[in-house]
């Protein structure tokens, strides 16, 4: 929706949209952290998910990630980096989980 209006006028719809969404996402995170009755684990998961959504949003709306001549390469490398980060962090945790488990029982 933002792109169509972009091409017609110079009004920075994208930035406005990104700005409002960022405020909304931050506010939601704050509300969850301060006023919700979820378990701590759930709160942490929710906040992290909101943070990742916001990071992606900012990259798209403010950082012009996909707009330059090599936008595809930029987007691809970001996605690959995210993939590697997830593999390294979660993969290590998953692989070594049994070890952590052992230590706790000793």
């Amino acid at each position: 929706m933002a792109e169509k209006s972009m091409s017609k006028s110079h009004f920075p719809w994208k930035h406005i949209f990104g700005y409002i969404m960022s405020i909304v996402l931050t506010a939601v995170a704050l509300l969850i952290a301060l006023y919700s009755n979820f378990a701590v684990r759930t709160i942490v998961i929710l906040i992290f998910s909101l943070a990742f959504v916001q990071a992606a949003l900012q990259l798209l709306m403010f950082m012009h990630m996909t707009e330059s001549s090599n936008g595809k390469i930029q987007a691809g490398s970001m996605l690959f980096a995210a993939f590697i980060a997830i593999v390294v962090a979660l993969g290590s945790y998953w692989v070594l989980e049994f070890g952590i488990h052992l230590n706790h029982h000793e």
Binding site: G91, S92, V95, L96, G99, I100, N103
Partner: peptide, 14 residues
């Protein structure tokens, strides 16, 4: 002291 030798093997092969 809470260290984990297997983490080295894990990171090394990563």
């Amino acid at each position: 002291d809470g260290g984990m030798p297997m983490l080295w093997a894990n990171l090394f092969w990563l």
